[in-house]
Design a protein around this nucleic acid. Structure first.
Length: 959
RNA sequence: GCCCGGAUGGUGGAAUUGGUAGACACGCAGGACUUAAAAUCCUGUGGCCAUUGCGGCCGUGCCGGUUCGACCCCGGCUCCGGGUACCA
């Protein structure tokens, strides 16, 4: 017995089951078909489950996957979980539950939710970064990084053994590498170094290495954080304060790849904004490194500075070093010892947050030392100030107050000389610096009269000939901190033998996480693993107890999907060669400077060591926008009455400090969809508010319309409903704002096909937009109309091939095939939905019952609404899944049936559009068009319904 | 501050990149069916004027420019979103 009405629950359940039972979407690593790889950024399985924002990208990628399958591609479309990370561990600390347990639970929940939406993932390829069989290979990649260095001569990673061989033969004088400067030594010296000394030197070359530096230390989380994990001086997760602290840390030498990461951007199809963010993050700047000899230095040293403006060197009136500069203490003379040393101490110990919030504040101190200007020989003072950063360039600058606003502010504050060296009629450099990179040099000896660009070139030439320095390039990009003092991450496969870090052997992989009693960080800067003596102590030495950061596992997961169970390699060569780089990658833009950069780095490295044939992981990247929620806030002013809590709501908040801002459950807010009406909580809302929140049970509420309500509302429900005004804003969808919309609820009420279509219909994929339920009815109605095209009210299948298709129906069909095909390719999925709606409206109006036409329409719709299309496809008598059907062939001839474009000839002479519009009026053109022989022949006696005349454009006639 | 985006009806958004602006949908108004409601269907819907008829004028944040023709290109603003922040 077939259903007569569109029953989404029945249909969707049936087909999801069928797809699973028949492994419909499982793919092989081999096929005569061309390969196409569609990937979603895999989720971190949080305890909150999915909300309607998460599937947005998954739906889009699913549509692309299904579309590609219809077009004859063998599509790899996998899904997995980024399962290591802080929240699971925080939860473990609170509850004592093993993170693996909660992670497993969360994954199951995610899977259930995803299954309801009808994705075409090949679940046989699922990966989880926390599984030993997976992180074995994350550890393996780390080991490769440890045993390779970056040869700047060949511009690629090479094995460390090759480097050692070079050292043994000729020392390090000819070696150019990416990394910190290493004092030069000859072969003989190398051979005489002891093991610890040798390793100490090699650490400057390895791509994974240990270094003592100032790190971002977060006391609350008990761990070190990477730069990207710190936002505005607080941790991205949790928002805890972050301070600078010197510690020995593992790093990955991503800076070695700075230039290649920059160059690679030109070869990939990503949005300009993401590329731009990465370019800025890498922050390449060209300039010069110049030595300024320090006057009266016992060791006769020179202060090395970096500048992008060597052309302004004649304007350098003082020097500034960072408080962290190695020589600061040496530079401070006895006379200034007390004051300046105190300043240095103070500046070093300031938290990141303080430093950031007081950026505008100019601070500094004079060291008492001078150095000699290399061009003029003048003595210029050396200052120390925190506006110079220890971590960039050499941690020292030449200050040119006339042409750098920061130097200018400093000079003003401490009354230092300002010398103009770039000509500009408008600028008064005593008042304001002239920073623009334009103009001609003045007061600059041999540079005078040159344009900035030429002056820079000439200055560098001079610097290089006089051996004062050299032209060079600096990057903002820093090496990536890789150690985390946490439990729930991949153990770093290193054992310290007599303090020398050594990799464990390949056969010991995976190095699995031991069980611990307590997941809490030790607070001493050591991870919880340090407490497990039996694990830490090995025959040969002590294990590294730091674990890897969250981004380690996600930097290469796209490779594992190709061959997820391989235990001999990250994936077989055949699999990697067959699938190649990801063709289409979809995910949020928030990973621009994290995951997306690290993945590119690891890909380039794996390419260098011949593990993979490509050196960019993601050929095309699309960033879906965020689906936001409406955040409703109730403002309550607390007033004391008789020791009870007495709250007053407000319709206008003049001084926010007087009020408590409390997020409230969106479901109980009235009118929040309408923008013109103020939104408010009604009685029911206040009740639910009291249920959800502690401490308000016996509170007294006074709403702004003057009505008093007691804690239980009894007897207070008068004719006038009390109103508590709330304030609406658009924000994140999150548990704490009580505005989460669960996709399960939408699937239950409207169905997965409606959810899929509606999420696409909301607007352009890349835009962020607030979730709103208004409008979903339109999409649901569309599916019901589609159903009715095929199934009559008695449940009979209507379409037949008894009569040939009408021209107008063919036109509708082919317009749809064309438009939807084009729009999927340019990822304009919202317009596809409109196209479907138009088609169904037209088919309905045409009373189209042609089976061939309607079946082809089903194939076009199937990527968006697979369940209903499968069902109708089956009822049409097909034994095989619609997923195996070929995309219909588009035929242009069907589109030109009742309207046609014509060039216009007048008096036997074809006129150009331009000539026409210039010489004739609109009416005259219309007349000429109708008189045209071709037009008359085509009209064949009929009179045109509409003559559209656009001056300058080919005329369009509608009959 | 600097670097990217963006601004179109009451709302979400179309206009395939210089060629009929406002597709499609929501909302709203009116109507049909119904005892009634739901569901469904039909009509109207940028603004102003004309509406016994075809119609007219203005309209894509603001000002100016290029063009036969501009939401689209150029110059100058205003506002909004994102990235970044003493990077020399």
């Amino acid at each position: 017995m077939s259903e007569a009405h569109y029953n989404h629950r029945f249909i969707e359940h049936k087909w999801q089951q069928t797809w699973r039972d028949t492994n419909l979407y499982q793919v092989e690593n081999k096929s005569a078909k061309p390969a196409y790889y569609v990937l979603d950024m895999f989720p971190y399985p949080s305890g909150a489950g999915l909300h309607v924002g998460h599937p947005l990208g998954y739906i889009a990628s699913d549509i692309v996957s299904r579309y590609k399958r219809h077009n004859g591609f063998n599509v790899l479309h996998p899904m997995g979980y980024d399962a290591f990370g802080l929240p699971a561990e925080q939860y473990a600390i609170q509850t004592g539950q093993h993170p693996a347990t909660t992670t497993e639970e969360n994954i199951n929940r995610y899977r259930q939710q995803m299954d309801r939406i009808g994705f075409s993932y090949d679940w046989s390829r699922e990966v989880r970064t926390c599984e030993p069989s997976y992180y074995k290979w994350t550890q393996w990649i780390f080991m490769q990084l440890f045993s390779h260095w970056f040869n700047a001569n060949t511009n690629r990673a090479e094995h460390i053994d090759n480097l050692v061989a070079i050292f043994e033969n000729e020392g390090n004088v000819n070696v150019k590498h990416a990394g910190d400067d290493v004092e030069s030594f000859i072969a003989e010296e190398w051979l005489n170094f002891n093991a610890a000394e040798k390793e100490g030197i090699l650490q400057n070359y390895r791509l994974a290495f240990i270094k003592e530096t100032t790190v971002n230390w977060c006391e609350e989380l008990g761990t070190v954080l990477a730069n990207e994990e710190v936002k505005d001086g607080v941790s991205e997760r949790g928002g805890y304060p972050v301070v600078k602290k010197p510690m020995k840390q593992w790093f990955l030498r991503i800076t070695a790849y700075a230039q290649r990461l920059l160059d690679g951007l030109d070869t990939i199809d990503w949005s300009d904004s993401i590329k731009e963010i990465q370019r800025n993050w890498i922050g390449r700047s060209e300039g010069a490194s110049v030595n300024f000899a320090i006057t009266n230095d016992a060791q006769q040293r020179s202060l090395e500075i970096f500048t992008t403006r060597p052309d302004t060197i004649f304007g350098a009136t003082f020097m500034v070093v960072a408080p962290e500069h190695d020589w600061v203490e040496d530079l401070i003379t006895n006379e200034y010892k007390e004051e300046t040393s105190a300043y240095v101490e103070w500046a070093k110990n300031r938290s990141e947050r303080e430093r950031m919030s007081e950026v505008k504040k100019v601070t500094g101190a004079f060291t008492g030392s001078y150095c000699t200007h290399p061009f003029t020989g003048k003595q210029i003072p050396i200052w120390v100030a925190d506006y110079v950063l220890g971590g960039y360039g050499t941690g020292a600058i030449m200050a040119v107050p006339a042409h750098d606003s920061r130097d200018h502010a400093f000079a003003k504050k401490f009354d230092l000389d300002i010398v103009q060296v770039i000509e500009n009629s408008d600028a008064n450099v005593q008042e304001e610096s002239f920073d623009a990179k334009e103009g001609t040099s003045m007061n600059s000896d041999f540079l005078d009269g040159l344009e900035v660009k030429d002056a820079i070139k000439k200055a560098i030439d001079f610097i290089e000939t006089k051996k004062l320095g050299y032209g060079t390039i600096n990057y903002k990009l820093r090496d990536a901190g890789f150690g985390r003092q946490r439990y729930w991450g991949e153990p770093i496969p290193v054992v310290f033998e007599n303090g020398i870090p050594k990799l464990i052997s390949d056969s010991e992989l995976p190095l699995t996480l031991p069980d611990v009693e307590n997941y809490k960080p030790t607070g001493t800067g050591e991870s919880p693993l340090a407490a497990v003596d039996s694990w830490v102590n090995t025959e040969s030495g002590v294990r590294e107890t730091d674990t890897m950061p969250g981004w380690a596992g996600s930097s290469w997961y796209f490779l594992r999907y190709m061959d997820p169970t391989n235990d001999q390699a990250i994936a077989s060569k055949d699999a990697i060669n067959y699938w190649g780089a990801v063709d289409f990658y979809l995910g949020g833009s928030e990973h621009a400077t994290g995951h997306l950069l690290y993945s590119r780095f690891w890909t380039k490295f794996l390419h260098d060591i011949n593990v993979i044939p490509f050196d960019e992981p993601f050929k095309k990247l699309v960033n879906q926008g965020m689906i936001q929620g409406v955040v409703e806030t109730l403002y309550l002013k607390k007033e004391k009455t008789d020791g009870k809590n007495h709250f007053v709501s407000a319709d206008k908040v003049e001084n926010a400090d007087d009020y408590t801002e409390i997020p409230v459950h969106v479901d109980y807010v009235t009118d929040y969809v309408k923008t013109d009406a103020p939104s408010y909580l009604n009685l029911e809302g206040i009740r639910s508010f009291q249920d959800f929140r502690d401490g308000y049970d016996d509170a007294i509420f006074e709403c702004s319309n003057g009505k008093f309500i007691d804690g239980f509302f009894e007897g207070n429900e008068g004719a006038v409903e009390p109103i508590f005004y709330t304030h609406s804003a658009i924000g994140k969808m999150s548990k704490r704002w009580f505005n989460v919309v669960n996709p399960d609820d939408i699937c239950e009420e409207y169905g997965a096909d409606t959810l899929r279509l509606y999420e696409m219909f909301l607007g352009p994929l890349e835009d962020s937009k607030p979730w709103s339920i208004s409008g979903i009815d339109g999409v649901y109605r569309f599916l019901k109309k589609t159903w009715k095209l095929f199934i009559d009210k008695d449940g009979n299948f209507v379409p037949t091939n008894d009569r040939p298709a009408e021209k107008k129906s063919l036109k509708t069909l082919h317009a749809t095939i064309k438009k939807v095909g084009d729009d999927i390719q340019r990822i304009s999925l919202n317009t596809c939905v409109s196209t479907f709606m138009i088609a169904v409206n037209e088919f309905t109006e045409q009373k189209c019952t042609n089976k061939e036409v309607l079946e082809q329409f089903l194939i076009v719709l199937a990527p968006f609404a697979p369940h209903i299309c499968e069902e109708l496809w089956e009822r049409a008598g097909h034994a095989d899944s619609i997923a195996k059907a070929n995309w219909p062939i588009f035929e242009e001839k069907h589109l030109v049936e009742d309207s046609k474009n014509y060039p216009i000839s007048i008096n036997g002479k074809t006129r150009t559009n331009l000539e026409l519009s210039l010489s004739l009026s609109k009416d005259q053109i219309e007349e000429a068009v109708l008189a045209d022989d071709e037009v008359q022949k085509w009209l064949d006696g009929k009179s045109p319904k509409k003559v559209i005349v656009v001056p300058g454009r080919i005329v369009n006639l509608v009959v």
